[in-house]
Amino acid sequence: MSSLYTGVFKRDLTLAFRQKAELLQPLMFLVLVVSLFPIGVGPAPEILQMIGPGVIWVAAILSSLLGMERLFRDDFNDGSLEQLMLSGLNLNLVVAVKITVHWLVSAVPLLLLSPLLSMFLHMTVDMYIALLMTLLLGTPLISMIGAIAVGLTVGVSRGGVLLALLLIPIFIPLLIFATSAVDSAALQLPYFSQLAIIAAMLLLAVAFSPFAIAYSLKVSQN
Rank of each mutant, 00 (worst) to 15 (best):
P190Y: 14
L136T: 02
V156G: 13
V150K: 05
Q188L: 11
F171G: 04
L163R: 13
M85Q: 15
V154N: 09
K98W: 10
L136K: 00
L91Y: 08
G159Y: 10
F120D: 01
G160C: 03
I145K: 13
S106C: 11
G160K: 08
I168A: 14
H102F: 09
P115S: 01
V101Q: 01
F177V: 13
G160I: 10
L113S: 01
A96V: 05
A178V: 07
L195R: 06
L132T: 08
S184G: 10
F211G: 08
H102I: 07
Y128E: 09
M85S: 11
T124Q: 11
P140D: 08
V182S: 02
P169R: 08
M119G: 13
M127R: 04
G138M: 06
M144N: 12
T100Y: 08
S184P: 05
V108K: 00
V154H: 06
L195W: 14
I170D: 05
T153L: 12
M127S: 12
I142E: 09
L141E: 03
P190F: 05
F177W: 14
L203S: 09
A186K: 01
S209L: 10
L141S: 08
V95S: 13
I129V: 15
L152V: 11
H122P: 02
I145D: 07
S114L: 13
P190I: 03
A199M: 15
I129K: 03
A164H: 06
A185Y: 02
S114V: 12
T179L: 00
F171I: 12
